[in-house]
């Protein structure tokens, strides 16, 4: 039997995403690439890794991020205003990859990927060492148009499950790969005081369906929330809270990010 190059790679090293869930509860941190600039994005990714993050989601900024709240919308505008492009982000990731083996996923909207060209985009992902892709406006019904190409280049297409998914949960979970991104709340991304969704019931259905790890995101910002949510799932995803630190401290945010991620990782360990 002939094995293609990426099959061999899969055999030797697990896709890095699986490793993100090997050491207890996983902390997944998000930032927008190019905010405030790409050199700093690289530095912040490495800080998060050192602070104990298990996977980093790198947001490719988009002009019209319809699934984001104010905080990440503004980060998208800041990143685009300094001339951040998909190609420059790939160069940054390539550089990061020489310094760390932390799992990396790109998060963006359908159009920047479609416009770049699926074949060219995922080939580039493989070249620079991207492990997964999250596209919030590419639901289960549409993801087939890129999933095969992504898979050919060893990139996992991460699926999302929302509080409204109901009977769709099983279908999505059965076909999931990498990990499942469970959206904690209605609406858009952003810090929330309370999360009222019945996450336990959603997680129960997922766990009956698949062994793929589940991470919960949207609205989590405090160590207390991290601990509570972390108990229900295999990991938590934090975006807006980190982006807010970057918004406040700009170039100087490295230390603050490190302290914050460490506190959050500690909280989910307990």
């Amino acid at each position: 039997m002939l094995l293609r190059l990426h099959d061999i790679k899969e055999l030797i090293l697990l896709n890095r995403i699986e490793k993100a869930f090997e050491n207890g509860k996983s902390f997944i941190g998000f930032l927008t690439a190019g905010d405030p600039n790409l050199e700093k994005t690289e530095e912040f990714i490495l800080k998060m890794e050192r602070a104990g993050a298990d996977l980093i989601e790198i947001g490719i900024p988009f002009s019209d991020p319809v699934a984001e709240g104010d905080v990440i919308q503004e980060a998208n505008i800041r990143a685009l205003s300094v001339g951040t492009t998909v190609d420059k982000i790939f160069d940054m990731v390539k550089s990061v990859r020489t310094k760390t083996q932390i799992p990396l996923a790109l998060m963006t909207y359908a159009n920047p990927v479609f416009y770049y060209g699926y074949e060219k985009f995922f080939k580039k992902c493989e070249e620079v060492g991207i492990d997964g892709i999250i596209i919030p406006d590419m639901p289960y019904e549409e993801k087939d148009e890129l999933a095969e190409t992504a898979s050919r280049y060893g990139v996992k297409t991460i699926s999302l499950i929302a509080p409204t998914s109901e009977q769709r949960i099983r279908t999505i979970a059965e076909n999931a790969e990498g990990f499942l991104y469970v959206v904690s709340s209605m609406g858009v991304s952003g810090v929330r005081k309370e999360i009222n969704t019945d996450l336990k019931s959603i997680l129960k259905v997922i766990k009956e369906t698949t062994n793929i790890p589940c991470a919960i995101g949207f609205g989590i910002s405090t160590p207390q929330q991290a601990k509570e949510i972390g108990q229900m799932a295999d990991g938590i995803i934090v975006g807006s809270a980190i982006v807010k630190i970057i918004q406040e401290y700009k170039e100087e945010a490295g230390h603050q990010i490190y302290e914050y991620v460490r506190a959050m990782k500690d909280a989910i360990k307990k």
């Binding site: 019904e141 509080p163 409204t164 959206v183």
Partner: peptide, 22 residues
């Protein structure tokens, strides 16, 4: 592929949160 196509155009490229509703 989703329903609602006109040739290659159309589709349902929206967040999962809205899929059941739509």
């Amino acid at each position: 592929m989703s329903k609602g196509r006109y040739g290659i155009y159309g589709g349902q490229y929206i967040p999962e949160t809205l899929m059941n509703e739509i």
